[in-house]
Design a protein around this nucleic acid. Structure first.
Lengths: 217, 217
DNA sequence: ATTGAAATATAAACAGCGTTCACTATTTAA
DNA sequence: TTAAATAGTGAACGCTGTTTATATTTCAAT
């Protein structure tokens, strides 16, 4: 094993990493506001007071930079997902909260979320090993384990296949996020109940409830 | 009202429409194969033996052309969705088939489908009038009516709000389509049952079943 | 039939994009 | 002190969507 990574870095390497981080942070800010279209290498170079070519000393391509932004986002999202509080004990409520939180966090960074799922990712044998996988895959693995645990606890239907259920729940949550991003009025669309108009929050809550009820015992 | 549109058109107008249609059809072919990135104005111009600028005599912008391709696709999709066969009588089966068909048709034209929901559409008061809406919105309206009818028939839960249910079902179906597009191995991902590996078809069927059971009485 | 207007198609150009490359200046290690 | 590695630049390449001036053709009305 290595020594602590920090002491092994030369001043040059530390400077390199520092600039790299600075670029990432500025890029993340611009990307969050204006999306992929608004984040051009030239504009990024302007904002960090470097020439466009300089960025390629830190990143292989714009795509590589974007990939890192997306990975960072999904790590943040994954970290902020709730953990089950044994003292509380309401596992179904925990499941609902997990789904709701996923959707809400995704909606807080629509450009990040949307781009993370844009296009077709290379066909590769998906990693069953949670440590080697991307943050996206690790998040799915967490969902899978949540459902498997719920089945063991008797909260979710015993005849359920945890893997299949996890895929359906993920797909369903994913879809709501993207529809709400695409249609700014998705929550209130077609709603003619002017006395009690539907809020985005209510739609999210209902959806999560619908999904968790669907797998409950 | 007008006379039959055909007789009113001058030869020049007919030629104009003909070329327009030809451009659309070539663009649709290229777009289906190579997506938005593969469909550049210059390449399209090459394929139809015109100069790039000529295309702008027929379309305001590339975006306008793409919008038309997407609209055309959703009209096709909408038309190919099944209708309920009264003689059959199994309404739940009809609902399952509708969801399955939507997903399958979407997956047949992944570029069309994905682009149709890319980005944020302009915030506008969604049309409740089915005739004035886009094919996308009309398809949703069909789903809404399917669920409302199912409730009336006593097939779906009586305490269900058809509008809310339609939104959840649409979101859930939409999500599965996009995940399957993004992960070519979504169906078989994480699946360690090497004796009976999961097929895309099975995932779609299970998902549709999950959703329809969720709203059934 | 002729004339004037409208439509068509083109080539060239503009501004922007991601990326590469030759080159200089600086920093690092021996 | 010297040689090698690194940082950063400005210019260029080839691409993009789009606009414009221009020449040509088509069309309708005199």
């Amino acid at each position: 094993m290595n020594q602590t990574t920090e002491t092994e870095l030369s001043p040059a390497q530390r400077r390199h990493l520092k600039v790299r981080q600075m670029i990432l942070s500025v890029a993340d800010r611009v990307f969050a506001r204006d999306g992929e279209a608004g984040l051009s290498i030239r504009r990024l170079a302007d904002e960090i007071d470097y020439s466009p070519g300089a960025i390629y000393k830190y990143f292989d391509s714009k795509q590589a930079l974007l990939d890192e932004l997306k990975e960072m986002f999904f790590e943040r999202l994954h970290e902020e997902l709730p953990e089950f509080d044994e003292a509380d004990g309401d596992y179904a409520a925990f499941a609902r909260l997990s789904v709701e939180t996923y959707i809400r966090l995704a909606l807080e960074a629509p450009h990040h979320y949307e781009t993370a799922f844009a296009g077709t990712s290379e066909r590769k044998p998906v990693e069953l090993d949670a440590a080697a996988a991307s943050a996206k895959e690790r998040a799915f693995f967490g969902l899978y384990e949540m459902i498997a645990t719920g089945i063991q606890r008797g909260v979710f239907a015993a005849d359920l296949n945890a893997l299949h259920a996890a895929k359906s729940i993920w797909a369903a949550s994913h879809g709501l996020v993207l529809l709400m991003i695409h249609f700014p009025n998705f929550a209130t669309a077609f709603d003619d109940d002017q006395a009690a108009p539907v809020s985005p929050d209510a739609v999210i809550r209902r959806h999560a409830d619908f999904l968790v009820r669907g797998i409950s015992a």
